[in-house]
């Protein structure tokens, strides 16, 4: 195919893993991350500098990889697939620690956990609205699955369509979360509001950050889909993004059941 001459070249070198050349981006990214961490304590100028460096490094890696991935997608052992699988293992432990903290504090606080000064559950209003939001996120899981099955059939048009739909639904979910945060904040629930405020914002915020990250990788997939980089056999990035997105969905269902509905 005209779009990826390197891919054609690789048809011959299929048996060999292609190593990336030396790259200046890892060290630059690492220094940027270091500045972000220091900046969280030392103040926003350092934080902003670190963020800028990381963004530049990410852009560098992505442009470096856009060429490189294109030549190598689907040529081999799906190491990326395995990497994402084990990465989800760390995510399970991350949310386990958060849920453990939540359950610890719910048990310690007893019946008063999550009640506002009037004695009502802070999330009483949010249950329905967030329930709708939950349905939206689950729908995005369905569209994401359609995107994956589309490219497995080699249907590039449907892949683009469903990826865009997934990103749109995910964005709506994030919007709903922002609205909910604003309304809860106006009711006086802040991250400093005792153990409920702390654990509520930590759980939902960490999940929201994962949705944002998922939107990021799905956007890269969509961009590459519009470049025509995927076909029936070469779509590991779509596959792992879908796995990640389903994981984020499942965490949300658990979170909604525990924190909003309090069924567990």
């Amino acid at each position: 195919m005209a779009q990826h001459p390197e891919g054609a070249a690789h048809a011959h070198a299929d048996e060999e893993m292609t190593l990336p050349h030396g790259s200046k981006w890892p060290i630059i990214a690492a220094m940027g991350v270091g500045l972000i961490y220091v900046g969280l304590i030392a103040g926003w100028p350092i934080l902003a500098g670190g963020l800028a460096i990381v963004i530049i490094a990410m852009a560098g890696i992505i442009t470096e990889d856009a060429r490189w991935w294109n030549g190598n997608v689907g040529t081999g052992m799906r190491n990326g697939w395995w990497g994402v699988l084990f990465f989800l293992g760390t995510e399970v432990m991350l949310f386990s620690a958060l849920f453990a903290t939540y359950f610890n504090h719910r048990a310690a606080a007893g019946a008063g956990f999550g009640l506002n000064p009037e004695g009502q559950f802070y999330l009483a209003d949010a249950v329905v609205k967030t329930g709708i939001n939950t349905v939206i996120l689950l729908l995005s899981g369905v569209t994401c699955h359609f995107a994956h099955t589309a490219i497995r059939r080699g249907d590039q048009q449907k892949l683009k369509l469903w990826l865009v739909a997934t990103i749109a639904l995910g964005a709506v979910f994030i919007g709903g979360q922002v609205v909910e945060y604003l309304s809860l904040a106006s009711e006086g629930l802040r991250v400093q509001s005792g153990t409920f405020g702390a654990t509520f914002y930590m759980l939902t915020g960490t999940h929201g950050a994962h949705v944002l990250g998922g939107l990021g990788v799905l956007s890269i997939c969509a961009w590459r889909a519009f470049q025509g980089q995927f076909d029936q056999k070469r779509h590991v990035a779509v596959e792992v993004s879908a796995i990640y997105w389903h994981f984020v969905d499942v965490v949300w269902v658990l979170l909604y059941a525990v924190v909003y509905l309090r069924v567990l």
């Binding site: 060999e16 040529t75 990326g80």
Partner: peptide, 8 residues
């Protein structure tokens, strides 16, 4: 005998 591979 290097096995074939690719990053992503």
């Amino acid at each position: 005998e290097v096995r074939h591979g690719g990053e992503l």
